[in-house]
């Protein structure tokens, strides 16, 4: 197949599809209801896009910390990381 050289696996394909769907949804949302920058519990003025960025990056670091510090399954921390993204998106 033409994409063989990229060594796709099912989990990474799901990850990127989800990421692109979220970005597409954010674009549609921004077009329908233009965002207003505001200040939440984060120490800076943010738009939903900035909050999504901060949420995803910190969620990745939460996963990495879990991997580095414990031997437990990643699925335990996954709901907390997703919850953190939602928290940042709403009140951040």
């Amino acid at each position: 197949m033409i994409l063989d050289w990229m060594y796709w696996t099912k989990p990474t394909a799901i990850f990127f599809t989800a990421l692109f769907l979220v970005l597409a949804a954010m674009t549609v949302w921004q077009t329908l209801a233009p965002s207003v920058p505001r200040r939440g519990f984060l120490p800076l003025v943010t738009t939903p896009g900035t909050r999504l960025f901060i949420g995803i990056i910190t969620a990745i670091f939460i996963h990495l910390a879990w991997l580095g510090l414990t031997d437990l399954s990643l699925w335990i921390v996954f709901p907390f990381a997703v919850g953190w993204i939602v928290l940042v998106m709403i009140w951040g």
């Binding site: 050289w5 990474t12 990127f16």
Partner: peptide, 13 residues
């Protein structure tokens, strides 16, 4: 973007 995605694929194999 495409090279970065490829690196992500490498990293789990």
């Amino acid at each position: 973007i495409i090279p970065l995605m490829t690196v992500v694929n490498y990293s789990v194999q």
